[in-house]
């Protein structure tokens, strides 16, 4: 699929006045250091090494079961590494220092590191016992200590951005899947994360609702310099917003590079097969 120049992320960012993310030589925001994750005998991640620079938007692609989602879940501390260390902004995420030794991180340490990270789930996971407003304001008020007025105002702004301003007092169950996912995005952003994790955010949506959610994410990519890791099957979206694409298979990175390279001229057979299967399938 030919791509006109002014549609690349770099070009669009230059137009929007967003600073280009620091290149590979700066200190990474996220670094996976020989990370291993096993469930019983099943090795999901096999001595994985990679890093992400601040402001970088990275798409993780690959067949299901290749470990992409596990990477996000490890970063969100929903799972814990079997071996290796994950570093966020120079601090160990999965571990903490006790003297000079690195030990498995406790709840307190994890909460501290987690402050920087937000996540949007495949199944939205809005809280059904709260209105849209409270879904968005609950954590800023109670974990960040933001005042109620400020949190309400921020919720209104974010809902405006995702196009749901008038649904602020609705219940999640009254919204369509696409609307729920847009609220979930607003909810994650309300915590002002430096890193946003997107776990197949459109996979559970009816086809006609996908575009609305992707548009919101494109808008966030255009207007903020938030670091994004997104696991996605939407190849066009990956092409449009990412600086880098990582192709996974069997717990390892098979190939990585800028989207033009991965989608335009993949070097590995495995990548070609995969792209062929998704794009033609």
């Amino acid at each position: 699929m030919p791509q006109s120049d002014d549609n690349t992320p770099a070009a669009r960012e230059a137009a929007a006045g967003v600073p280009k993310p620091r290149s590979e030589e700066g200190s990474p925001l996220i670094r996976f250091d020989k990370v291993v994750k096993r469930y019983g005998d099943n090795t999901v991640l096999d001595h994985l090494d990679f890093s992400v620079q601040p402001g970088q938007r990275v798409s993780l692609i690959g067949p299901s079961g290749s470990g992409k989602t596990t990477i996000l879940r490890l970063l969100m501390t929903l799972e814990h590494v079997t071996d290796g260390v994950i570093w966020v902004n120079g601090d160990p995420l999965s571990h903490e220092y006790k003297g000079t030794d690195l030990v498995k991180a406790g709840e307190q340490h994890q909460r501290e590191v987690r402050k920087k990270i937000g996540m949007v789930f495949q199944q939205f996971n809005l809280f059904p016992n709260m209105t849209v407003r409270r879904n968005i304001t609950e954590s800023p008020i109670h974990t960040l200590g933001v005042s109620r007025d400020e949190a309400d105002q921020r919720a209104a702004e974010l809902l405006d951005m995702v196009g749901l301003k008038e649904r602020i007092d609705a219940h999640p169950t009254q919204l369509s899947g696409g609307q729920q996912q847009r609220v979930a995005i607003a909810r994650a952003l309300a915590m002002r994360p430096e890193i946003l994790l997107l776990d197949e955010v459109t996979s559970a949506l009816d086809p006609e609702l996908v575009a609305g959610v992707l548009d919101v994410l494109r808008e966030i990519a255009r207007t903020t310099d938030i670091t994004m890791l997104s696991v996605t099957h939407e190849m066009q979206f990956a092409k449009d917003v990412s600086h880098r694409v990582l192709m996974f298979d069997k717990g390892k990175i098979v190939e990585e590079g800028p989207p033009d390279q991965i989608f335009g001229a993949p070097a590995e057979d495995r990548t070609r097969e995969f792209l062929h299967a998704v794009l033609e399938g």
């Binding site: 929903l78 937000g118 199944q123 954590s139 974990t143 994790l197």
Partner: peptide
């Protein structure tokens, strides 16, 4: 479990998880 995971992603304290999400549901 997804509800519990969402509270972690939003960095709730354990007590807050229980009080505002788990118990009401």
């Amino acid at each position: 479990a997804a509800q519990y995971e969402a509270t972690i992603a939003l960095n709730f304290t354990p007590a807050q998880r229980l009080r505002s999400v788990i118990l009401p549901q």
